[in-house]
């Protein structure tokens, strides 16, 4: 029983990370009908920027407060960098081809993904790096390294074995999803986004600056991906290809949940995370863990192609 609950908690935590990435896919798809395959790279860039802020950030992080400040700065930095990259990608790569067929946009997105991966290999070196190993040396980094040790270790509330990182990830993703929900449902900007999603032409006729709305959507998606990248980068290690598999699984999560639907992305992410974790609990050989997400994708596409919360669109030919 305890093992089961542990697997559920693990699954929820992993799932919320997928959900944070899936939000970016679903937001962008909802508005421009583009599956942005470069989204995993925003996640990777977020992880790297957080890493470099912690490594070279200001202040001698000797007290817990300066450590907290530096961490917040790193999170802000990774979010900002990933958003800016997302806006730039949209402006440079996607906007000029928006009027063409959707297959053009899809192929462009795959190209952008490869381009960003390889630029990262040049910029950050192709070798994997680790937050913990990089921060262990030097006096100033000691409290930071201690934070990372805490982040990776397990606390045992009520006899469960929950990694501290997972709790933090869960909290951060819950807060950011709440913020996103309020932003989309309760603000004027959100209204503009929803209008653009419904019908981009009509929205423009109503006086909405759709280019700005689209840029904002990319920025939001990038922001979540960047933060998720840093949260998971601190847990494992970082390399230029790290965005590929989480990006792919988050894409599956978005499709399973119903692409274009924000609650759908959350549900999809949690469903994939839980399924993976429970499959291992049910003694599925661990080497099949990665296949679980894709098996679910196949089943969903066969039975309910629009996803769990998606609405069926009639395609006008």
């Amino acid at each position: 029983m305890q093992d089961f609950l542990q697997s559920v908690l693990d699954g929820v935590a992993t799932g919320s990370l997928y959900a944070m990435i899936a939000l970016g896919y679903t937001l962008v798809y909802g508005i421009v009908k583009l599956i942005n395959f470069a989204h995993g790279e925003f996640y990777m860039v977020g992880a790297y920027v957080g890493f470099y802020v912690l490594l070279y950030g200001p202040g001698d992080a000797a007290s817990p407060w300066t450590v907290a400040g530096l961490l917040l700065l790193a999170v802000a930095g990774s979010a900002a960098a990933a958003s800016i990259l997302a806006i730039a990608t949209e402006r440079v790569a996607y906007r000029p081809i928006r009027k063409y067929d959707r297959i053009v946009a899809l192929l462009t997105a795959i190209g952008v993904s490869f381009l960003l991966q390889n630029l990262a290999r040049i910029a950050f070196s192709p070798n994997p790096q680790s937050y913990v190993a990089a921060l262990r040396g030097g006096a100033r980094d000691l409290p930071l390294a201690r934070f990372l040790d805490w982040y990776q270790s397990y606390s045992l509330p009520f006899d469960f074995e929950i990694q501290n990182a997972k709790i933090l990830i869960l909290a951060v993703s819950a807060v950011s999803m709440g913020v996103l929900y309020v932003l989309v449902m309760k603000t004027r900007v959100g209204k503009a986004m929803r209008a653009t999603a419904q019908d981009i032409e009509a929205a423009r006729l109503m006086g909405i600056d759709t280019d700005r709305v689209i840029a904002l959507t990319f920025a939001l998606g990038g922001l979540f991906a960047g933060v998720a990248g840093m949260l998971s980068g601190m847990l494992y290690n970082i390399n230029p290809m790290m965005g590929f598999l989480p990006g792919l699984k988050a894409f599956v999560a978005a499709v399973v949940g119903g692409i274009g639907s924000i609650p759908g992305a959350v549900i999809g992410g949690l469903a994939i995370g839980l399924a993976e974790s429970l499959a291992v609990f049910a003694n599925l050989p661990t080497e099949y863990k990665d296949a679980v997400a894709f098996a679910i994708l196949v089943v969903i596409l066969l039975l309910r192609p629009q996803g769990i919360l998606g609405t069926k669109r009639t395609e006008k030919v």
Partner: peptide
């Protein structure tokens, strides 16, 4: 025997099985 593949980052599920 338990297994993993190159590029994996989370080994806790396998390690839990091994602990069990």
């Amino acid at each position: 025997m338990e297994s993993y593949k190159q590029g994996d980052t989370d080994f806790v599920p396998q390690l839990r099985k091994i602990r069990r």
